[in-house]
C-alpha cells in the first residue's frame, strides 16, 4: 500500500498538468483499492451465498437415490405448500396492518416533537427512541413477560374492573400481540428518522406560509409531510423488508405460546425449520431464495411504481 502511495504522489501533480491517461489509470486503481475490500466481502458473503442457494435449491436429497437435480421442483413444491403459502399470507397481512400503524404513530410523534419545544418533549424523544436500543429478541422476551398469565400485569389491570384479561398469546390475539411488540420496537426509530428530516427543513418556509395565513395544521399537512416524503418512503421500504422476513419475535414467543405459533408461522421460520430441524437444506434454500426474490422484486417494483426511485437512492 505504501509503495503505491509513494509512486502515485508525482502523478497527483500531473492532474493539474493534464496528463490524462495517467490520471485515468490512477482513478481506476485507487477507486478499486478503496472499494476492493468491500467488494471482496460483497462477493463472498452476498453474491456467493445467493448463487449457492440458487444452486442448492435446484436439487433434492432423497433417502433412496441420493441427491438429484430436479430443476424447479422445489419451487413448485414451495408455491403449492400450504405451510409456505399461509406463512407468506401471514407476513403480508401483518405488513398491511403493522407498517401503516407504525408509520402513523411515528409521524404523529415526530410532528409533535418538531412543533412543540419543552424539557418534557426532549425527554420524551429519548424515551420513545429507547426501545430501538433493545435487541428485538429481548423486546420479545420482555413483552412475553407482560403477556404472561402467571406474572404479567394484564390480569391485575383487568381484574380491577372485574374483566377477564385478553390473552395476547392465544391464537385469536397473537396477531395483535405481535403487532404491539413490533410497533413498540420500531416506532421510535422511525420517529427519529422523520424528526431528523423535519429538522432539516428550512424554517423560512414556515414563516412564508404563516404570512400567507396558514395554520399549524396546514403547515404540517402542506409543507412538512410533502417535504419529508423521501424519509417516509425510506422507512416504508425498511419496514417492508424487515416485516417480510419476520422471524425473531414469533420464534421467541413460540415457546410461550405453545400451539398458537407453529414452526411454519412465517416463511423464514419455515425455512429455518426445514433446514435445521429437518436437515432439508435444499428445500430450505429454495424457500430462502424464493422469499429473498419476492422481497427484492416487491420492493423494487414498489419503488419503481411510486417513481420515487431517484429521490430515494
Amino acid at each position: 500500500m505504501t509503495l503505491i502511495t509513494e509512486k502515485s504522489a508525482p502523478s497527483t501533480q500531473d492532474r493539474t498538468h493534464k496528463i490524462r491517461g495517467k490520471v485515468r489509470l490512477r482513478e481506476h486503481v485507487m477507486g478499486w483499492l478503496f472499494v476492493g475490500p468491500f467488494a471482496i466481502v460483497f462477493l463472498a458473503l452476498l453474491i456467493a451465498p445467493l448463487a449457492y442457494a440458487l444452486y442448492l435449491s435446484l436439487f433434492q436429497k432423497r433417502l433412496i437415490g441420493g441427491t438429484s437435480f430436479v430443476f424447479l421442483d422445489n419451487y413448485v413444491k414451495a408455491f403449492t405448500d400450504s405451510s409456505f403459502l399461509s406463512g407468506s399470507w401471514f407476513v403480508i397481512r401483518f405488513s398491511l396492518v403493522s407498517i401503516p400503524l407504525q408509520i402513523i404513530i411515528a409521524l404523529a410523534m415526530a410532528l409533535i416533537l418538531d412543533a412543540v419545544t419543552s424539557l418534557f418533549i426532549r425527554f420524551s424523544r429519548l424515551m420513545i427512541f429507547l426501545p430501538y436500543a433493545i435487541p428485538t429478541v429481548i423486546g420479545a422476551v420482555m413483552w412475553g413477560f407482560l403477556y404472561s398469565k402467571s406474572f404479567g400485569p394484564l390480569s391485575d389491570l383487568f381484574g380491577l374492573f372485574g374483566a377477564t384479561p385478553p390473552d395476547f398469546l392465544s391464537s385469536n390475539l397473537i396477531f395483535y400481540g405481535l403487532v404491539n411488540v413490533v410497533t413498540w420496537q420500531w416506532a421510535g426509530y422511525y420517529m427519529i428518522i422523520l424528526y431528523a428530516a423535519l429538522q432539516g427543513i428550512d424554517p423560512a418556509l414556515y414563516e412564508a406560509a404563516r404570512i400567507d395565513g396558514a395554520g399549524k395544521w396546514q403547515i404540517a399537512r402542506r409543507i412538512k409531510i410533502p417535504l419529508i416524503a423521501p424519509a417516509l418512503l425510506l422507512i416504508l421500504v425498511f419496514s417492508l423488508i424487515g416485516t417480510l422476513q419476520f422471524f425473531n419475535e414469533p420464534q421467541i414467543l413460540r415457546s410461550l405460546a405453545a400451539g398458537t405459533i407453529g414452526p411454519d408461522f412465517t416463511p423464514n421460520m419455515y425455512a429455518y425449520q426445514q433446514a435445521f430441524a429437518l436437515a432439508n437444506f435444499n428445500y430450505g434454500s429454495a424457500i430462502s431464495f424464493a422469499l429473498g426474490g419476492i422481497v427484492f422484486v416487491g420492493v423494487y417494483a414498489f419503488l419503481f411504481f411510486t417513481r420515487q426511485r431517484r429521490s430515494f437512492l
Binding site: P49, L50, A53, L56, Q245, Y272, A275
Partner: peptide, 21 residues
C-alpha cells in the same frame, strides 16, 4: 447499483446458504 440492489435483499435470506457454505 449492485450495492443499492443489495439494500433490498433481506439479510435472513442469506443465513441458510451462508451456513451451508
Amino acid at each position: 447499483s449492485l450495492v443499492l440492489g443489495a439494500l433490498m435483499v433481506p439479510a435472513t435470506a442469506l443465513v441458510i446458504p451462508t451456513f451451508m457454505m
